[in-house]
Write a protein that binds this DNA or RNA. Structure first.
Lengths: 212, 212
DNA sequence: TAGATTGTTAATCGATTAACAATC
DNA sequence: TAGATTGTTAATCGATTAACAATC
């Protein structure tokens, strides 16, 4: 990455989309793609794509385009997907269960190492071949298995307690599905995934579409 | 809303967050709140909150603040949550199952009216008291029950076929969980919820945190 | 009335789009 | 070489922040 250039969150959020599409492109046997063609597939302007990529380096060839294989490798490198992050899910409710079975995480380079819950009926079972541990053992397992990311899938009311435990256990980042703000020290990166926002904004747009 | 003022997507996406927090505030028995106090709870600047709200009308009282009850009603009105939208889920995999059991939708004013799948083992069962119908009956049930929103929770490969059926059935909006772009006529509102984006961007930030 | 807080206008900041020189 | 397409700089657009008059 270029020195002292801050990359916008908007750019970071587009990189996974580029990655996903480039993989499809690769499966189609296409070896070189222009920003024009990629943009058409993504409904993103070619200028935007070139700008995003150029903020990390020169990945394309003028007059030619981008080598798909190489670009996938480069974006993977930028996103740190080749690091094989170990992750864990806290909470085996419906959502935790679904996340544990989400097929795309592994193909992106994440390894689900452990699941935690406090329900004695759940502790000890396996979900998608991953063991469910009692939350008491969080610190121990996180250290032992070098887990960097905690996914919070517990009820809202327990989200902060779990956050505190994750921080104490030395986690680096949290992906929070509880619909509330959680507090953690500044060096912990938090991504909030509030499912009610999407549906509610849909309601907003439909109201306007149908009213007018 | 003020005439010919386009409201930014960023503003729309903050309204559900305001709503959620105002409800908590209300439960605490607080009747009046200033943009300052609300901002502190949300980690959003008070100016931002006032600007967002002011784009829809004058909901506050100068020198006083916002009446919580009234503001909740007003935001609900703006978002169209009082319309009692009928919604449906397509696909009873792990994710569809989790969404059918998501507790927050109903409290936001959405009624899950039907679930669809093609698996004969799933057709006829009930998930969270809602019946699973065969996808063949989509058109019929959508019309009959006045369903406005379809939630796509099918595998990637089937997302476009399901989209086409939803459009044909006369749905107004689609909430898409399949990690790919779906195509629909311009009058259909689509919200994409790509779960891999959040985790991948977390990987990006951790890479930088841990490297430097 | 005095203090507090909104709503709005102006200033700043950031992100996207346009244009084009560089070059494969 | 001629055509194509990147990478980068400049122009535009949009969103956030600052400032303050209005007023409860």
């Amino acid at each position: 990455m270029r020195d002292n250039v801050v990359i916008s969150k908007a750019t970071i959020d587009r990189l996974p989309i580029y990655m996903r599409t480039l993989r499809l492109v690769q499966e189609e046997g296409i070896e070189i793609i222009s920003s024009e063609d990629l943009g058409r597939r993504l409904a993103i302007t070619p200028e935007q794509i070139r700008k995003d990529l150029a903020s990390f380096g020169q990945f394309g060839k003028k007059g030619v385009g981008y080598y798909v294989r190489e670009l996938i490798r480069n974006i993977g490198e930028i996103l740190g997907l080749n690091r094989g992050w170990n992750i864990s899910i806290i909470g085996v409710g419906h959502l935790g269960w679904a996340l544990a079975n989400y097929p795309n995480f592994m193909s992106l380079g994440f390894n689900l190492q452990a699941i935690f819950d406090i329900d004695p009926h759940k502790v000890g079972i396996k979900v998608n071949e991953v063991e469910v541990f009692h939350l008491e053992r969080l610190q121990e397992i996180v250290t032992e298995r070098n887990i960097a990311i905690g996914i919070i899938a517990v009820p809202e009311i327990q989200a902060q307690v779990v956050t505190d435990k994750l921080v104490e256990a030395g986690i680096g980042g949290i992906w929070n599905f509880a619909p509330r703000r959680i507090y953690a020290p500044a060096h912990i990166k938090i991504i909030n995934e509030d499912l009610s926002v999407g549906l509610t904004s849909l309601s907003y747009y439909l109201t306007r579409l149908i009213k007018e």
